[in-house]
Design a protein around this nucleic acid. Structure first.
Lengths: 211, 211
DNA sequence: GTTGAAATTAGTACGAA
DNA sequence: TTCGTACTAATTTCAAC
């Protein structure tokens, strides 16, 4: 099991539970919206901003937490200030049937901030934060390459992080200047040859089962 | 200027300030460590966990906030529960001299959670969260491809998010099972041909200046 | 940098709408 | 369900050490 929720399974709560435990209404979403911007706001202030009573705010707040819709509260830290000025992305090709090992090794690498399994040319992307470029090299050549599950890696450096939203919510979509149009309406004005979608490699169908 | 801190410039605070404003000692780092796990902990409880007095904790807490070492507090939301079950990475090739436009357009796309400028084959990577796969297609073909700054895109889907650490800190490194070794020691036992580093494309040196 | 006491605020319980 | 209120516990502020 992943450390964070899978795309088709409820994140927290009871292991065997199927389906959604809590129907999120507009007020729930509004609460999430506020909490995402200010994770330390008091429930009293939250109630006022959302326009509900204090008691109701406590009930909903606890429900969102218990349900797993809110996974945790965290402080966003300036990694440069914290001494980790170098960020890199490492794209990893993983040997089939060895995902479990790969995941176990990942858990022992504290410089890894994020890891996702992807379609396309590579199998996984990991993001690491270290204090100097040499450490990236050490990480890749010494640590990652020595994992039998790792077949190949490709590393790029992050030069600048342009945008990081606290967490995207469905309600954000309504604030967009260009609201979503159905796909068929867009066929006429799409510049050709600009984009490319990369599906899963061969044999990847069984990927999620052996993790 | 980026929405979040650049790799070589202090994030918050006064715009013209050069250098670090606050020397982070072990206690500062320990505070960050606690807040990263529990962003809603009271300063009183924080003081106890770190082993300092409350007044000291308040002083340091405020200093970290004012200095920008703590950028903000946020709730981590289960995007699946929130109705955004599809996550994709879009690698974008950007026309030189058009970074400003690209960034401006990004700010108007609420489904974009993260955007980083990278070395390697592409210029930028953006992560989007939407409710169904068709929306990814719409986003790429309708919105992104219509931006003149966008030369080409390549899209992959995220099948599973294996790991997301709240934010990596230097102190994490000491907890690793395999402490970092100098690079020269590793030359003997590195499997050959496994890894590849991808540097910046030609003309990318000026990349960060025209943003 | 620490402790303690006052003022404020947060969290809980419960009855009514 | 949600709201309003009263009650209890905890936190923050501020002062003296």
């Amino acid at each position: 099991m992943s450390e964070i929720s899978r795309n088709n399974v409820s994140g927290g709560g009871q292991p065997g539970r199927i389906g959604i435990g809590l129907e999120l209404d507009d007020i729930h979403l509004k609460i999430l919206e506020v909490l995402r911007e200010n994770g330390r706001i008091s429930v009293a202030a939250l109630a006022e901003r959302v326009g509900i009573s204090r008691a109701n705010a406590y009930t909903r707040f606890e429900a969102l937490r218990a349900d797993g819709a809110i996974k945790r509260f965290t402080a966003e830290i300036d990694h440069v200030r914290a001494g980790l000025g170098i960020t890199a992305l490492i794209f990893v090709t993983v040997r089939q049937q060895m995902w479990k090992q790969f995941r176990a090794e990942l858990a022992r690498m504290p410089e890894v901030e994020y890891c996702a399994i992807t379609t396309g040319q590579h199998d996984a992307m990991i993001q690491v934060r270290v204090s100097d470029v040499a450490e990236v090299h050490t990480m890749v050549t010494d640590r990652l390459a020595n994992i039998p599950a790792v077949k190949a890696t490709e590393t790029v450096f992050i030069l600048d992080e342009v945008l990081r939203r606290p967490y995207v919510l469905p309600s954000d979509r309504d604030q967009a200047r260009h609201p979503r149009r159905p796909a068929q309406e867009t066929q006429g004005d799409v510049p050709l040859g600009k984009m490319r979608f990369v599906g899963a490699a061969e044999g990847r169908a069984a990927l999620r089962k052996d993790g």
